[in-house]
Design a binder for these strands. Structure first.
Lengths: 345, 345
DNA sequence: CTGAAAGCGCTTACAG
DNA sequence: CTGAAAGCGCTTACAG
């Protein structure tokens, strides 16, 4: 069954290929009755244009690449994917996934040079890759960065971000207001820029309140983020630092593991120890107890990223833009005031 | 900067286009020194083949389509995506995501007819769509089904599945052995075939143990699955049926919500009420308490699906195959024996 | 408002 | 082992 081509449509409608192409692309200069005839022919023949032919001849991939870290099934990443996927489709673009764990900077740049994609959206950790950064800039590849690691590295790119430092300063401040003075902190992957900035915000809040920063209360390793890291590090914190009344997790997954560690030790959350997270993910309202956390609008961020990228693809001269989105403290049940008699436990 | 083409490589290596094409495609009949020269020329020029040109001229999309339900950030789906993504790349294929919520059966069939994909992997709910099913079969589109809703609907397709009914029979049996007699059941989306089969397995186990099936203890609505459904339905169950000592969730997300409902009512898990889930997801070891559940190997299932699909794409005459994968009961801490004095609570 | 020609960068089918 | 020709199904650039 040979596929129906634009030629077949042209023949049936009694017009040239170019005219069919015009109606396909919604170009204005077509007479109404011609338009009708072509549309009728398309419908009769059940015509579907060949996407590869279009892309080859037009030189446009009509595809954006999204470079993600693993595991994609972490809530943060899969939510970003969903949002970017939907937004790009809404705007007539396809969507292609890349993982630097799988393929490396070279392969990604090749995807662009081979015409597979028109541009990229980077998030950490890909935005931190020096090689990728360099190649992208050298080749003038359009791209936008979500949560950039230092604007200087991505001068030509647009940015979408939240203020991680300020956000964590705020949630720490919230705990301080509640009366906490002895904090533990469990970072997610400590190489990631967001995590570094969040830790900074924590220190800042401490500093502002005149509370000494204790390095031995900070757990910050460079490991892939999964809830069990929060569990392991939380356990260590509880053993090493019994005076702690509140623990801040670098994200919700970590916080969930920390809660597990506390509960397993026979202590209660928040009665004995308060815990807060960051992100406000799919499960955060359903943890036991429900998590007090900082909402990061990752879905909106991905939407903005797609829009900014398309802007740059369609007008390479347009100026890079920076969009800073607001976060929001979501108070649930995992944090409360510390008990008076700390040492009861 | 015009892209380097196969023509440029041929010119520099002093051979014909066809020969360059041969080395590109690893065809055997090339002399060693020719091979070297061509490779050298490719390297010198930093040549990247144009993927659309290849696909247009070869007539192969080298792409598989994966049709998923929303939300993709549910653990089950995002894990399937990750696994299918990796496996298809490993085999030299691209990977394209489709969502029937977004686009409908027509669009999906068009993607095939337009040459964008060589075949599809369906999971529920897409495998339940009659229109899609019919079109796929009429056009002889290669596809494979994960967890099919009745084999008869997909006679030409290969299948990858687990035995949901038997698995839930087993986990119910486990609870019965523990001493439970009064069960509650909260289904996830009750239209999904897996959920229907799980409920069947539950009834079967009850029947085998001579325990009456009580319809009023079953919560099974047709709604999208999110943890908060488990919470809402769990609450109703607790109010309406105080004699219940164990609740089975249609999946882990639901179970998580059920636990939340129990805890919020001031009861304990598992001391007052046992809860079990299904899937064994990313967070199940970190819930409070950690969830006893049935492990579904969705990552392996996706791998098998890719393999079976590629088999069919490359040899349309090959027979449909059925692969049944094993599940495994994962005993953690959310289920235990019921207390003697039920009404103490 | 419409069309004829050339071309996008590859592969196919055939020949030698 | 290698190549010349034709073609995949569109769009571009130009002309009228």
């Amino acid at each position: 069954m040979a596929p129906i081509t634009l030629n077949d449509v042209a023949a049936r409608a009694g017009v040239s290929k170019k005219t069919v192409s015009r109606v396909l692309n919604n170009e204005p200069a077509v007479a109404d009755d011609t338009l009708d005839r072509v549309r009728q022919a398309m419908a009769d023949l059940n015509y579907v244009p060949n996407i590869f032919a279009r892309r080859l001849s037009s030189g446009k991939a009509m595809t954006i690449g999204v470079i993600v870290g693993w595991p994609i099934f972490s809530h943060y990443i899969s939510k970003m994917i969903e949002s970017a996927f939907k937004e790009s489709h809404r705007r007539g673009y396809s969507f292609s996934l890349f993982s630097m764990d799988d393929v490396g900077a070279d392969h990604i740049v090749e995807a662009y040079r081979g015409g597979q994609v028109d541009g990229f959206i980077l998030d950490t950790p890909s935005s931190m890759d020096r090689n990728l950064q360099k190649s992208l800039n050298t080749l003038h590849v359009p791209y936008v960065v979500i949560n950039p690691n230092g604007r200087a590295n991505h001068l030509r790119a647009s940015h979408v971000e939240i203020d991680d430092e300020e956000a964590t300063r705020e949630i720490t401040h919230y705990l301080i207001e509640l009366g906490h003075r002895d904090f533990g902190y469990v970072s997610a992957n400590a190489q990631i820029i967001q995590q570094i900035n969040r830790l900074k915000g924590f220190r800042k809040a401490l500093h502002e309140a005149g509370i000494p920063y204790r390095k031995d209360h900070i757990m910050a390793e460079a490991r892939i983020t999964v809830p069990v890291i929060g569990f392991d590090q939380g356990k260590r914190l509880l053993e090493d630092c019994p005076e702690i009344t509140a623990i801040i997790g670098g994200n919700d997954d970590i916080a969930m593991g920390v809660i597990r560690a506390i509960l397993q030790k026979g202590l209660r959350v928040p009665d004995d120890i308060s815990v807060v997270g960051f992100d406000d993910n799919y499960y955060s309202a359903m943890t036991a107890p429900p998590l007090t956390t900082m909402h990061q609008p990752i879905d909106e961020m991905a939407c903005h990223a797609v829009q900014l990228l398309l802007q740059r693809i369609n007008d390479p001269t347009c100026k890079p833009e920076r969009r800073l989105l607001a976060v929001e403290l979501v108070v649930r049940e995992s944090a409360t005031s510390p008990r008076r008699e700390k040492n009861l436990r």
